[in-house]
Simulated assay, not measured.
Amino acid sequence: MTVLTITAYFIIPVYTILFAWGTNWFTLNFSILGSLADRKNLFLLWGIVVGTYFYYVLKRIIRTLPRNKKEKVCTTLALMLLAMAVTIPYLPDTQPFHAVLHVVLSFAASISLLLSLYLVIWKLYCMNQTVYRPYFISLLLITGVSAVLFFLTGIVSTALEIFFVLSSTFLLHRLYGKVCSPRILWKYQRL
């Protein structure tokens, strides 16, 4: 088992669920949990682990794609926005401007990540529809379920955040295994 596999299937899921453990997943979110004194550093560490994983894996996949400037920009933007979001506290009562900025940055980071995933998977799908159709359909399902979770609660809830992070992590790891397998990389190196 590689470090990426352990991170995708053990570290990120366990850490994400433990971070939200003992809270109401449908009325709270990671921003509120991360503003609590006893979870502030845990939230920062969670952002570092998740952001680094997504950035590293997407970067490795993107370098195999032709004309990949948009994908690089979206991925880098998602990481930068996430880094800023987890370092700005969400304290609406005492720091309303910072709270609004945190929400905007968090939402923008998620949208940038989702856009990056769509750009990458769409390009792969256009290159080989048979192989990458399941990945594209999975991404559509992740988007759909995320939208349903949002409309059920009316907020970006912990349940939505956990679902989105975990399903995207699993999808990205599977995609990484498909795109960056030694057989495929050998083909690109010979070109």
Rank of each mutant, 00 (worst) to 15 (best):
W46M: 15
S31D: 06
N24I: 06
T75P: 01
R133I: 07
P89L: 06
H98Q: 12
A109W: 10
A85T: 07
P96S: 09
V100Q: 13
T27H: 04
L113E: 08
N24Y: 02
T27V: 07
S146H: 08
M80E: 05
P66W: 09
V49L: 12
V57W: 02
N24G: 03
V104P: 00
G154L: 02
T75Q: 00
I155Q: 04
N41G: 04
F107N: 12
V103R: 06
P89R: 08
V73R: 08
Y135P: 06
G144F: 14
Y135A: 12
G47C: 12
N68D: 07
T94Y: 14
M80W: 06
S110M: 12
I88H: 00
T52H: 08
G22V: 08
L79D: 05
I137L: 14
K70P: 10
C74R: 09
F26M: 10
D38R: 10
R67G: 05
L81H: 04
F136D: 04
P92R: 05
T76M: 06
V120T: 07
P89F: 06
V156E: 03
L139P: 01
Q129M: 15
P66I: 10
A108V: 03
V148S: 02
V57M: 05
T153E: 08
R133F: 08
I62F: 01
A109I: 09
R39D: 10
W21F: 14
I155R: 06
L113C: 09
A108M: 13
V86Q: 06
L79H: 04
N41H: 13
T75N: 13
R133S: 12
Y53V: 02
L44Q: 09
L36T: 11
G51N: 07
M84N: 05
S106Y: 11
L58M: 15
F150D: 00
D93H: 13
Y55A: 11
V148N: 05
L117G: 06
I61S: 09
S157Y: 00
T27D: 07
L81G: 00
G22K: 06
M127Y: 07
V120K: 01
L91I: 15
K40A: 15
S35G: 15
T143A: 09
P96A: 10
